[in-house]
Design a protein around this nucleic acid. Sequence first.
DNA 1: GAAATATTTCGATAATTCTAGAAATATAGT
DNA 2: ACTATATTTCTAGAATTATCGAAATATTTC
Lengths: 104, 104
Amino acid sequence: MEEITAADCFAALGHPTRLGIYRALVRAGDNGAPVGMLQETLGVPASTLTHHIQTLARAGLVKQERDGRVLTTRADYEQMRGLLDFLTDDCCQGLGHLFKDDAA
Amino acid sequence: MEEITAADCFAALGHPTRLGIYRALVRAGDNGAPVGMLQETLGVPASTLTHHIQTLARAGLVKQERDGRVLTTRADYEQMRGLLDFLTDDCCQGLGHLFKDDAA
DNA sequence: GAAATATTTCGATAATTCTAGAAATATAGT
DNA sequence: ACTATATTTCTAGAATTATCGAAATATTTC
């Protein structure tokens, strides 16, 4: 993953509401969740929610798919994996011993 | 790691200059790097640099230690580990198979 | 095609963050 | 005490981000 892309992902996750959205989507699993459901879960006005979801989508952390009136959003696990790889392999290169193994 | 702390860490890393600072500090290793060295490496004015370093420090991603006139900054690997754990264990709970193992 | 539903875009304001020069502070050496 | 060095704080303007109601768009159902 490019450093710029990683920074975009971090910035996207660096807002409480957006981190909450992302976590809700992970919990929702492969089915994802429609905007309306997130709206109920998180108690954020629709237009605000749309903007946050778009920020996550621009960073590639979520994907959206329309099915009729309902726009379903899903977490993109590949992007998250890429972000984790960036952290462990690229950004913190040589510190794998600190991160990958447990039993510190 | 608390969700709020994680969001603070993400926000801190979500800026190209700060991500660059953090990576430079990881490369610098346990010795860390003084502000002046980062200034040369990254070509950022001192006052701007100070603010970015403070943002990283507030998020707990770096620590500073004064030695005479020189203020040395070091990456705090424990915090990074906490952040990675947050992602793999808490935020993306149940998706460990995607992240921890390789050979996808 | 009108009404209902789901979501986005528009538009405007408020809030925050970013940037960086200048002045201030702290320390060290002379 | 004076000078040089390292870094921070002050300050202010610019830029970006956040918020959300209202209007607009798209889709389904009747």
